[in-house]
Design a binder for these strands. Structure first.
Length: 90
DNA sequence: CGTATGACGTGCA
DNA sequence: GTGCACGCCATAC
């Protein structure tokens, strides 16, 4: 399975109200060194069925979003999470 | 086939 | 504490 599809698959499996870091997703994808690929792939594919808004940076920051970082924050807020100064608060 | 890219991460000043 | 620069791997062109 290509890494790309694996990443998408892992992200799709993220439960509601839960978030993972790019590094964690890459690790679940069996390629902990390719965390860089997670953002790269999601950005190039940005599938609507993929809750990519649940994927954040290891620093707890939102990172970025093709539809707009504000949109990502709104989605996370709907999930029950809180964002403070662009950072996720669990 | 080779080059450039990327929603990142960590280290050091 | 903040900012800058480098490193990294796979995909896309």
């Amino acid at each position: 399975m290509k890494f790309k599809e694996t990443i998408l698959k892992v992200v799709k499996k993220i439960p509601k109200g839960k978030i993972l870091t790019y590094k964690e997703v890459a690790k679940l994808a069996q390629n902990p060194r390719a965390w860089r690929l997670v953002g790269n792939i999601l950005n190039k594919n940005r599938d609507p069925k993929i809750p990519c808004h649940r994927v954040i940076r290891s620093d707890g920051k939102i990172g970025g979003y093709k539809d707009g970082i504000k949109n990502k924050i709104s989605l996370l807020k709907k999930e029950g999470l809180m964002i403070k100064k662009g950072k996720i608060i669990v």
